Simulated assay, not measured.
Amino acid sequence: MPDIETTTTNDETFTAENHLGEYALDIDAQGRTAPSPNEVLVADYASCFTFAFRAGAMRNDYDDLGQIQTEAEANLDDEDDLTDVSFTMLVEAELSDDEIDDLLDNAEDICHVHAALRQDLHADVTVESGAF
Score class of each variant (00 low, 15 high):
residue 1 M to C: 07
residue 1 M to V: 12
residue 5 E to R: 09
residue 7 T to D: 01
residue 8 T to A: 14
residue 9 T to H: 05
residue 9 T to V: 01
residue 14 F to T: 10
residue 14 F to W: 11
residue 16 A to P: 00
residue 17 E to K: 09
residue 18 N to W: 05
residue 19 H to R: 10
residue 22 E to Q: 15
residue 22 E to H: 09
residue 24 A to W: 04
residue 26 D to S: 06
residue 27 I to V: 14
residue 27 I to A: 12
residue 28 D to Q: 04
residue 28 D to F: 07
residue 28 D to A: 10
residue 29 A to M: 08
residue 29 A to N: 07
residue 30 Q to V: 11
residue 33 T to Q: 13
residue 33 T to Y: 14
residue 34 A to L: 03
residue 34 A to D: 08
residue 36 S to T: 14
residue 36 S to M: 11
residue 38 N to E: 11
residue 39 E to C: 09
residue 39 E to Y: 09
residue 39 E to T: 15
residue 41 L to V: 02
residue 42 V to R: 00
residue 43 A to M: 09
residue 46 A to I: 02
residue 46 A to Y: 04
residue 46 A to E: 01
residue 47 S to G: 15
residue 50 T to V: 13
residue 51 F to P: 00
residue 55 A to M: 15
residue 56 G to Y: 06
residue 56 G to E: 04
residue 57 A to M: 04
residue 58 M to V: 14
residue 58 M to S: 09
residue 58 M to R: 15
residue 61 D to W: 10
residue 61 D to R: 15
residue 62 Y to Q: 07
residue 63 D to G: 15
residue 63 D to C: 14
residue 67 Q to S: 15
residue 67 Q to N: 15
residue 67 Q to R: 13
residue 70 T to E: 00
residue 73 E to W: 06
residue 73 E to I: 08
residue 74 A to H: 08
residue 75 N to S: 14
residue 75 N to G: 12
residue 76 L to W: 13
residue 76 L to M: 14
residue 76 L to F: 13
residue 77 D to H: 11
residue 78 D to N: 07
residue 81 D to M: 08
residue 82 L to F: 00
residue 82 L to S: 04
residue 83 T to M: 05
residue 85 V to C: 05
residue 86 S to F: 00
residue 87 F to H: 13
residue 87 F to L: 06
residue 87 F to E: 05
residue 87 F to R: 02
residue 88 T to L: 05
residue 89 M to S: 05
residue 89 M to F: 03
residue 91 V to F: 07
residue 92 E to T: 01
residue 92 E to C: 04
residue 92 E to F: 05
residue 93 A to C: 01
residue 94 E to Y: 00
residue 94 E to R: 04
residue 94 E to I: 01
residue 95 L to C: 11
residue 98 D to N: 09
residue 98 D to Y: 04
residue 98 D to T: 10
residue 100 I to M: 06
residue 100 I to V: 13
residue 101 D to V: 02
residue 103 L to F: 02
residue 105 D to E: 11
residue 105 D to I: 05
residue 105 D to Q: 11
residue 106 N to P: 06
residue 107 A to L: 02
residue 108 E to A: 13
residue 109 D to V: 02
residue 112 H to F: 12
residue 114 H to M: 01
residue 115 A to M: 02
residue 117 L to T: 02
residue 117 L to N: 03
residue 121 L to H: 02
residue 122 H to F: 11
residue 123 A to I: 05
residue 124 D to N: 14
residue 125 V to S: 10
residue 127 V to W: 01
residue 128 E to K: 08
residue 128 E to T: 09
